[in-house]
Amino acid sequence: MSEDLDIPVAIAPKRRPRNRPASPAMRGERSFLRSTGVGLLWIIVAVSIIMLGWMVMQAFRDTRSILGDPWGLPETIDFGNFVRAWTVGDFAQATWNSAVTTIVSSVLTVAIAAPCAYYLGRVENRFTRSISLYFILGLGIPAQVILIPLFVMLNQVYLTDSLLGLNLVYIGVSMPFTVFLLTAFFRSLPLEMEEAAALDGTTAVGTFFRITLPLAKGGILTAFVLQVISHWNETLLSLTLMQSTEKYTLPVALISFVQQQTYSGADWGGLFAGLVIVVMPMLVIYIWLGRRLTEGLTLGMGK
């Protein structure tokens, strides 16, 4: 019987090579349903990749040939669409605005949230627990709730239509998630090193900066990149707060580019170029740090 064979495998599951169909006892389940599922899954994967590649390809073709043959490939590498999007669609300014806002607000978000998360993770009493809860409540509040009051408030201090205002808003709005993520992360770090440092006479501040932060590099990088992604893609707040073209962030510029087309006729070439400008940084980040991101986004999910 084949069952006899897989008992040692069951005892020492580590010996089994990874990503290999499991032990003989489970080999019988290659059912029809399952292989259809696997086939479907690979089709989904292939379609996703093809769509992405297709979008990039179309960005190098002009509108007429795109409409003529949507499945065609570019004959030459022509950056005309990008040039047009860059100049006519004001994407240059918008990309710059988005890049600066994203980097500045993400750095500051993490810089402000990390000490707070450290404190909440290390000092446990009723007071810090209620502060943690106070932060977590923010996770459930959708942006449209704070949209109008925020607009009114910022308008009174002349921070609407200002990148400074947008940065401040992004930092405030990102606090709940970042504090939540980093608190869980700091809790998972071992306490011993900090105790040793304290015994050697390091102050609490010194311990945080010289021991904990270097240990927490990975978690902090994850939090930072997650903020980069969410700030780069943020649309609703930026659409509300930014009014003049030279202050637009990339998503808002893309929306206004789409809306111009109702009047000036569809410029699909330029539009595809715009989409590629929005998507590419995310693809680069994902290829660079993919595993870390999925781990960060699924961290603490079982709690």
Binding site: Y119, I146, M153, G172
Partner: peptide, 20 residues
């Protein structure tokens, strides 16, 4: 440590939510 995060969050998130 907690002050700045608390301030940003309260001013730019909780206060507008209450304002809403």
């Amino acid at each position: 440590f907690v002050g700045p995060a608390f301030l940003f969050y309260t001013l730019l998130f909780v206060l507008p939510a209450a304002g809403a």
